[in-house]
Amino acid sequence: MSGFSRRSRARAQLALLLGPVSLFLAIFLAGPLIIMLIYSFLAPGLYGGVEWEFYPHNFGRILGFADPEFEIFDPVYIAIFLRSLRIALTTVLITLLVCYPAAFQISRLSDRWKSFALFLITLPFFASLIVRLFIWILILKKTGFINVALSELGLIDTPLELIYTEGAVVLGMVYIFIPFMFLPVYASVEKLDWTLVRASQDLGANGFQTFRRVILPLTLPGVIAGSIIVFIPALGNFVVPAVLGGAKSLMLGNLIEQQFLAARNWPFGAALAMLVMTIVLALLFIYIRYEARRGDDAPVIR
């Protein structure tokens, strides 16, 4: 009897604590998402808006079954998809290559230098993203810092094509996402028990063997978490390609933005957004499955 009332009281408390945030998310996250999902299956209206009829060809335009009445299939959207994937993956790889060794170095510093280094890593968050990207324009443009410096030194005659290339987009992405990669990687590197490294060496393993069998597996959770945290926003990013990329390095984010704001084809934009979300959710699902499996052999803190 009292057990029941205690349980119902606990339930009421839970509802009280979780209620507001659940309500907020239901209205402002799930709501628009459902609208997007529905729109992605509706036909675009002639002057914007939607026609209320089932229309699968929004996805068809991307995946290969375009509306036979209006257009023949153009693989340009698949190409943009693949380019976005490529740029996002390259970004993940480069940020990882930068952050992983740095995490080891920083984890060995004394506490004072450690917190200073972490402060430096998070410092860019204090300045506006747009401002930081426009500085890259100053550096990369035809009359920018690099080209002027190189021609002054007599190393080049004509300015290099640095800006408005895929390379510039990757550079900007790496620049933005380094802190996102660094923090999870650092968290797992910092936790690494160095006596395990000693134990491995003691048992005859050289540096490379120790890295492959002990250090990498034990820091892999941080590497995977960092990769996902970087990959997801990199895939849908539209600020960096908008500022540093040219027409040739259009990414999904820009395409979606164009569909909503310029082409006023909301259903097509919604379909693109849904596809990106599907990829991201699939990745997250795999990651959660991996985490759940790993939970069994996660290091125990004693």
């Binding site: 000693r198 491995s200 002990v214 290091p299 125990v300």
Partner: peptide, 8 residues
């Protein structure tokens, strides 16, 4: 001292 067994 603390065994240093590989947890994984």
């Amino acid at each position: 001292q603390n065994y240093a067994l590989f947890p994984h």
